[in-house]
Computed example of a mutant assay.
Amino acid sequence: MLGNFQHSQLRIEVEATAPVIRDSLTKIPQLRQWLAPLPLGEGLPERLIPGVTLHTGVGLATLTQTVDRVGDDHLRLILSGTIDGFHEWYWGDGWVQSRLEGISLLPLNLGQTLSLLKLKQFVTTVKSPVV
């Protein structure tokens, strides 16, 4: 893989509960909403589980993301293609954290920041699920 090794860890406050954040990061319909217009691929299950593969990107900038781990407060994706590395998400009531490491020609921190801002905007519009 061509590029530079990059790593970034960002944490932001969000006006959302942990279940809302979890569902926004692990349920395919919610992912499609806040990641639009990026495609995720077809034939995906309702929720991310280990082994599921997402295909995103536009033109030559394509990214394959394979779910490595998923839990009530975390998600880990193995990345290949435009980025070779991993992306970890952690969350709780009122916060979300993204950790990204990989080799790429693209500025990973910029994409990571934009993703976090889009997620923040999305989760603030979602109602908390009734438990």
Rank of each mutant, 00 (worst) to 15 (best):
residue 34 W to V: 06
residue 25 L to A: 03
residue 60 L to N: 11
residue 110 L to V: 15
residue 49 I to T: 15
residue 31 L to Y: 05
residue 118 K to Q: 10
residue 13 E to C: 10
residue 94 G to Q: 04
residue 107 P to T: 06
residue 100 L to T: 09
residue 83 I to G: 04
residue 31 L to A: 05
residue 67 V to N: 09
residue 126 V to M: 09
residue 66 T to A: 06
residue 20 V to T: 14
residue 22 R to L: 00
residue 61 A to D: 12
residue 115 S to H: 05
residue 60 L to Q: 14
residue 66 T to I: 00
residue 66 T to G: 03
residue 102 G to Y: 01
residue 60 L to D: 15
residue 98 S to R: 08
residue 18 A to H: 07
residue 87 H to P: 03
residue 91 W to N: 04
residue 15 E to F: 02
residue 122 F to V: 00
residue 58 V to T: 15
residue 82 T to K: 10
residue 50 P to L: 12
residue 60 L to F: 15
residue 59 G to W: 10
residue 56 T to Q: 12
residue 99 R to G: 08
residue 50 P to S: 08
residue 75 L to W: 05
residue 96 V to W: 03
residue 29 P to F: 04
residue 90 Y to H: 14
residue 94 G to P: 11
residue 7 H to T: 14
residue 97 Q to P: 09
residue 41 G to A: 04
residue 46 E to C: 08
residue 16 A to F: 08
residue 14 V to N: 01
residue 18 A to M: 09
residue 65 Q to N: 05
residue 4 N to M: 11
residue 24 S to K: 00
residue 64 T to K: 15
residue 45 P to S: 09
residue 61 A to V: 15
residue 33 Q to D: 11
residue 31 L to C: 01
residue 49 I to L: 15
residue 117 L to F: 11
residue 52 V to W: 11
residue 27 K to F: 06
residue 20 V to N: 06
residue 67 V to Y: 10
residue 67 V to I: 10
residue 86 F to S: 13
residue 116 L to V: 00
residue 23 D to F: 00
residue 127 K to D: 12
residue 54 L to S: 02
residue 34 W to P: 04
residue 107 P to M: 07
residue 54 L to T: 07
residue 117 L to A: 08
residue 44 L to E: 05
residue 66 T to L: 02
residue 58 V to D: 13
residue 128 S to V: 04
residue 117 L to Q: 13
residue 31 L to N: 05
residue 49 I to Q: 15
residue 123 V to D: 06
residue 89 W to D: 03
residue 41 G to Y: 09
residue 72 D to L: 03
residue 44 L to I: 01
residue 74 H to T: 07
residue 76 R to I: 14
residue 84 D to Q: 13
residue 16 A to K: 06
residue 130 V to Y: 13
residue 55 H to L: 10
residue 68 D to P: 03
residue 117 L to R: 13
residue 36 A to L: 01
residue 81 G to C: 05
residue 20 V to R: 08
residue 128 S to Q: 13
residue 128 S to G: 08
residue 11 R to Q: 11
residue 52 V to G: 03
residue 54 L to P: 10
residue 21 I to H: 09
residue 91 W to E: 01
residue 34 W to F: 07
residue 62 T to A: 04
residue 111 G to M: 08
residue 11 R to D: 02
residue 22 R to I: 01
residue 125 T to E: 03
residue 10 L to R: 14
residue 106 L to N: 04
residue 84 D to K: 13
residue 81 G to V: 02
residue 102 G to C: 06
residue 55 H to Q: 14
residue 84 D to G: 07
residue 57 G to M: 03
residue 116 L to W: 05
residue 101 E to P: 00
residue 75 L to V: 01
residue 73 D to R: 10
residue 82 T to L: 14
residue 59 G to Y: 07
residue 42 E to Q: 12
residue 37 P to V: 07
residue 122 F to W: 09
residue 72 D to G: 05
residue 85 G to N: 03
residue 104 S to V: 04
residue 84 D to V: 12
residue 39 P to C: 06
residue 62 T to M: 11
residue 29 P to T: 04
residue 118 K to S: 04
residue 73 D to Q: 11
residue 80 S to L: 06
residue 18 A to P: 06
residue 4 N to W: 12
residue 95 W to T: 03
residue 70 V to K: 08
residue 28 I to G: 01
residue 115 S to C: 05
residue 8 S to K: 09
residue 103 I to L: 11
residue 66 T to Y: 05
residue 52 V to C: 09
residue 33 Q to A: 12
residue 26 T to E: 00
residue 58 V to C: 11
